[in-house]
Computed example of a mutant assay.
Amino acid sequence: MAIVPEIIKVFIVEDENLVRDTLAQSLELVDNITVSGTAEDITHNINTIKSAQPDVLIVDVRLKNENGIDACKNIVKSLPHTRIIILSGYFNESLAANALAAGASAFLSKSIAISHLVAAIFHVMVHNSFYAPQLPDEVLEDILVKNKTSKRMCALSKRENEILLLIAREYSTKEIASMLGISEKTVRNHKSNIMAKLGITSHVGLIKYAYYMAMI
């Protein structure tokens, strides 16, 4: 568990004035929370957000000039310790998965009570896990597994991805070497590296992995 500051600084990014002001006023009434700033979007206010150094950034998924989830990627790079909570009027599994992949710590429906938002703020400050209480447990678990798997895929080089695809299509080591113009030893070395990076211990496991990732 992380050490929670005595006062949690929250920054709100919401393009609807009424919603933004209501959220800010409501959160200011909560002990141990202060609103360090508000903005209509991230792109045009990135320096303001950086200067505020918020502990938690609350972002609407659909902003007037940008996609809130995509814009959050800049925050993750600039303020890696800031927790991001995505609010969405349209709540589904795909958006939750995109939020997690972008680096968000929580994904919540905009229809929740302010008390649930407060609970989410404290949760993301204490726990290092994705928070989406409105999703069924099995759906959330599936999202977490797929996100972890996607990160592993990013660790593979272009050549390793090529070889993994050919292995999944059941080409032999000799055939892969011929197709790529490399030696069989090089193919075997790449295969070993792929298995090590993905944490897979068998040839069958590689094929199953590729199938799971929709490569075949």
Rank of each mutant, 00 (worst) to 15 (best):
A71E: 02
K50L: 14
P133F: 06
N128A: 13
R152T: 03
C72L: 06
L140W: 00
L95A: 13
N45P: 04
N47Y: 15
V118N: 10
G68R: 01
Q134M: 08
F130N: 08
N147H: 12
H44S: 14
I167A: 08
C72R: 02
V59Y: 02
S150Q: 11
A120Y: 09
K73R: 15
V145M: 09
G68T: 04
A113D: 15
A113K: 15
Y131V: 03
K148S: 14
A104D: 04
T149S: 10
N98R: 13
P80H: 11
L164F: 06
L100D: 00
N147R: 02
S115C: 07
I84E: 06
A119F: 04
E141F: 04
H44T: 12
N147Y: 05
A119I: 07
E160S: 12
I85S: 07
T149H: 05
R83G: 05
H81M: 13
S94F: 12
I42S: 00
S109F: 04
R62L: 09
I114N: 01
S109G: 13
K64D: 10
T48W: 03
D70A: 11
G89H: 09
L95T: 04
R62W: 05
P80W: 09
C72Q: 04
T48S: 14
R152I: 06
N67V: 08
A155F: 03
N47Q: 14
K64A: 13
I49M: 05
S129Q: 13
E162P: 01
K146Q: 11
N67P: 07
V59W: 00
S157V: 10
A102S: 14
S109C: 11
D137T: 13
S88D: 10
A102I: 09
E160P: 09
Y131C: 07
F91H: 06
S109Y: 01
A39V: 05
A99K: 01
I42G: 00
N128I: 05
Q134S: 14
N65L: 09
S78F: 07
N65W: 04
S111A: 11
V124K: 08
K64C: 01
L79D: 13
L165G: 05
A97P: 00
I75C: 10
I121G: 07
G68Q: 03
I49H: 07
V118D: 10
N45H: 15
Q53E: 13
I84Q: 06
K146C: 00
N65E: 12
T82I: 12
V59H: 03
